[in-house]
């Protein structure tokens, strides 16, 4: 005697209380926080400048405008730099390379790192050990060091830097991915898929990955922040193919000798980099807080 359909649930229609928690909705929920909004605004602003900048610059970025280190005045809103070029025009032109390189490097590192981390967590055996030891080897270098070493040998080409940064991003992401995946691997719904004979790659990307997105998104924004910082630092240190390419990092180095009397040449790119990295940092923090809030309210049940 099967109870009539729905009879014993008819008592009270349970209202849908907590909003569903999923990956895309994690992003959407984090938008409710002020910090995420500010972060997105900052990043958006600077990306806009990087893309549109060159087209609205008052002068060409290598055009001679006035005497070197002239204070702000006609023709140069923020004065000129060490070669007499317009600070504003160089500023508008100087973000593209940093952003593009950081984006490519982080994305590449992210993909490789996620795959390695998830595979290591799911394998739970010798493969896990081998992969993680490999990651340890790469982690033995501070990020900037590997880029320097590579640049020392091959030369400071953009692709060298991108590969170096991507390579050093991989183990850091892999660690986080593995750490986030390990508790999920223990859960019964994974065992259920295994019992049904679902192919391994499907379990990895269909079951495991969606459940680790929270920590991964936070780490991805952290990595982006770092990548931007390291790439700008490398330019600052003098590693660029063309010394006169407009580049925020390089601008700071070139113009810091004049900090005492014409600071704008260095201060403007500093502001640009600072706002950009703060933006990515705030986004990451916003996502992290949203994820933590969700975990806490779920744990309370």
């Amino acid at each position: 005697m099967i109870p009539a359909a729905g009879a014993d649930m008819a008592a009270e229609a349970v209202p849908l209380d907590a909003p569903p928690v999923r990956a895309t909705s994690l992003l959407r929920r984090s938008l409710r926080l002020w910090r995420t909004r500010i972060g997105i605004a900052l990043v958006g602003l600077l990306v806009l400048i990087a893309i549109v900048g060159p087209f609205i610059a008052p002068h060409g970025s290598s055009a001679f405008v006035a005497a070197p280190f002239s204070p702000p005045g006609k023709g140069a809103v923020f004065g000129t730099d060490h070669l007499g070029q317009d600070v504003l025009s160089r500023l508008l032109d100087g973000g593209r390379s940093i952003l593009l390189m950081a984006l490519i490097a982080t994305a590449a590192g992210l993909i490789a790192g996620v795959v390695i981390g998830l595979v290591a967590a799911y394998a739970r055996n010798a493969l896990d050990d081998v992969l993680m030891r490999g990651m340890d080897v790469i982690m033995a270098f501070p990020q900037i060091m590997l880029a320097l070493v590579a640049a020392a040998v091959v030369g400071p080409h953009p692709w060298v830097i991108i590969v170096a940064i991507a390579l050093t991003t991989v183990p850091r992401i892999a660690r986080v991915a593995r750490g986030a995946a390990l508790p999920v691997v223990e859960r019964d719904f994974i065992a259920c898929s295994e019992a049904m004979g679902v192919p391994r790659w499907r379990i990895l990307f269909g079951d495991l990955l969606p459940n680790t997105l929270g920590p991964l998104m936070v780490e991805a924004s952290l990595r982006m922040t770092y990548s931007i910082g390291v790439i700008a630092a490398l330019a600052f240190l003098g590693l660029s193919t063309n010394p006169n390419d407009p580049n925020w990092g390089l601008m700071i180095q070139d113009n810091r000798t004049a900090l005492a009397f014409q600071p704008w040449g260095a201060v403007m790119p500093i502001i640009a980099i600072a706002l950009l990295t703060m933006g990515t940092g705030l986004i990451g923090d916003g996502i992290a807080r949203t994820a933590a809030g969700i975990d806490r309210s779920r744990g309370a049940e």
Binding site: G229, A233, I252, A266, I270, I273, A274, M278, T280
Partner: peptide, 21 residues
């Protein structure tokens, strides 16, 4: 949070700006 996001060379130059020059 803000301090952590800034690259070191930015922090260094800002410190120089604020406290030295």
């Amino acid at each position: 949070l803000v301090l952590a996001a800034l690259p070191e060379f930015v922090v260094a130059v800002v410190l120089v700006l604020l406290l030295a020059t």
